[in-house]
Every structure is written in structure tokens, then in C-alpha cells.
């Protein structure tokens, strides 16, 4: 049983010329193993900033608050230490790494996370299974990481990593964006499989309710202007589907004036 605990997290980003812009204004969130939390919010609300600052992207500066995983201070860790501690971020825009094959990359990552090289035979089998589950061509393993991948291939590749690296906590940053309905189903099944197999906690960041038909959230948090403005169960996402974010936008404006 693991717990990712985010307390009053405040984050700014450098916007050039030494100027910082505050993006997160104090976020509180607790995720336990086996739980799925959906964070929903309009564009520009800071959802991705939350994801990337937990993962440790150097672009963001933590100006206050804390993030701990089972009591360990995540913010003190380097990016790779966070991953080895059990955090995983499925990125909205995965990065190309020319000349590095998917197979080499995955094996290197698996070795780093486990602290030892996986046994070749089980590894080849696991890789094959993960690829076939996600309906990927076997040749995929020989391609260079994210180079020339379609949007759908990139997302499948992210979820394949989730399945193979078996993190304690998985943050999925708009994994649903740019996917057609078939790809969305395949990718969602991958997330559900990973959850069932490892009991990971999931933080699902999305703009749309569509993915929540396939990945059932236990908790829904509405994220507006850098903070959580409403929380509830799955019924909250249904309400958002009907009403949209407009009513929060007004509230956020008022909150801003009050700041």
C-alpha cells in the first residue's frame, strides 16, 4: 500500500527575462494504491504543470508545499530517483530520441527501475505480450523512440512502459488527447490491466469525460486556475459532461479578484 501525498503545492514557471509566473496556487491531493483520481479542467488551468512538477521537470520551480511518496520527500529527488521510487508520468507529448530503439530504451529503463537487468527470456516474453495486448506491430520494438510515431503509437508506447515498469503511482497526462475511439479503448484497457496487476494508484489528467467511460475514477477533482475547486465521486464527471466548465470559470474569476 502506497500513498502519494500532495500538500499545498505551489509552482511557478520561468517565462523568460527572469520573470516567473505562478501556475499552481496550493494543491492538496492524496492518492492511495488502487485508487483512480481524475483531474479535470479547462485548457491552461495548470493540470499538466501539476503532472510535470511531480515528475520533476526542470522548467518548473516549486515555490511552496510538499510532495511525498510513502513519507519520502519527492521534491528532494532527481527526476530519475523519482521514477525509481515508483512514480511514472505518461506524457502528453512524448519526446523523440533518435538512434535509440524502443527495445533498447525499455530494457535500459527496466534495468534502472529494478536495479538489475531483467532475465532475457522473461523480458522478451513480457515485451511481446505487452505489445500484442496494445495491438502493436512486433517491428515497433526496433523503431527509434517516438521517432515518426503517430499520435496513437506514442500513447500506446507510453502505456506499454506503464505496464512494463510497474510503478506504484502513475500520472497520465491527457493520454486520451488525439486518440480515436479504438485507440482510446486499447490504451484504456492497458491502464486497467496495469492497475489490476500491480494495484497502482492512478492520477488521470484529462480535459474530456470520454476516457472516464473506460477508466472508472473513484474520485473526480475539478481543476481551475491552478487549484482544485470541487471534488466528488464519478457523478461529478457526468455533471461536467452536461454542464462543462463555464460555471467554474466565473468562480475562478471571482477567486482571482479576491486574491
Amino acid at each position: 500500500m502506497s500513498t502519494l501525498s500532495i500538500r499545498d503545492l505551489q509552482v511557478s514557471v520561468n517565462v523568460g527575462e527572469g520573470e516567473d509566473k505562478q501556475i499552481l496556487h496550493g494543491v492538496d491531493l492524496t492518492i492511495n494504491s488502487g485508487e483512480t483520481h481524475a483531474i479535470m479542467g479547462p485548457n491552461g488551468s495548470g493540470k499538466s504543470t501539476l503532472a510535470y512538477s511531480i515528475a520533476g521537470h526542470p522548467k518548473y520551480t516549486i515555490t511552496g508545499g510538499s510532495v511525498t511518496l510513502d513519507g519520502e520527500d519527492v521534491l528532494e529527488m532527481s527526476v530519475d530517483e523519482r521514477a525509481r521510487a515508483g512514480l511514472f508520468l505518461a506524457m502528453q507529448y512524448p519526446v523523440e530520441v533518435p538512434g535509440v530503439s524502443v527495445s533498447n530504451f525499455l530494457r535500459t529503463a527496466k534495468t534502472a527501475i529494478d536495479g538489475e537487468a531483467p532475465k532475457l527470456r522473461t523480458w522478451m516474453k513480457d515485451l511481446k505480450t505487452a505489445m500484442s495486448d496494445l495491438q502493436m506491430d512486433p517491428e515497433f520494438a526496433q523503431r527509434n523512440v517516438n521517432e515518426g510515431f503517430s499520435g496513437g503509437e506514442k500513447k500506446r508506447h507510453e502505456i506499454m512502459q506503464l505496464e512494463l515498469l510497474k510503478p506504484k503511482m502513475a500520472i497520465l497526462d491527457e493520454t486520451d488527447s488525439g486518440l480515436d475511439i479504438d485507440a482510446l479503448r486499447v490504451v484504456s484497457e492497458g491502464v486497467n490491466r496495469a492497475k489490476t496487476e500491480t494495484g497502482a494508484g492512478v492520477l488521470l489528467i484529462t480535459h474530456y469525460t470520454r476516457i472516464l467511460r473506460y477508466i472508472k475514477p473513484d474520485f473526480v477533482h475539478v481543476f481551475v486556475a491552478g487549484r482544485i475547486v470541487e471534488e466528488g465521486g464519478p457523478e461529478l464527471s457526468e455533471r461536467l459532461e452536461v454542464e462543462g466548465y463555464e460555471r467554474y470559470a466565473a468562480g475562478a474569476g471571482a477567486a482571482k479578484i479576491g486574491d
Partner: peptide, 10 residues
């Protein structure tokens, strides 16, 4: 960042 976020050291 991408590689490190998968546990690979800098």
C-alpha cells in the same frame, strides 16, 4: 528529462 523520467540516470 524523458529518459530520466523512466528511471535512467542522467
Amino acid at each position: 528529462f524523458y529518459l530520466q523520467s523512466r528511471g535512467i540516470t542522467e
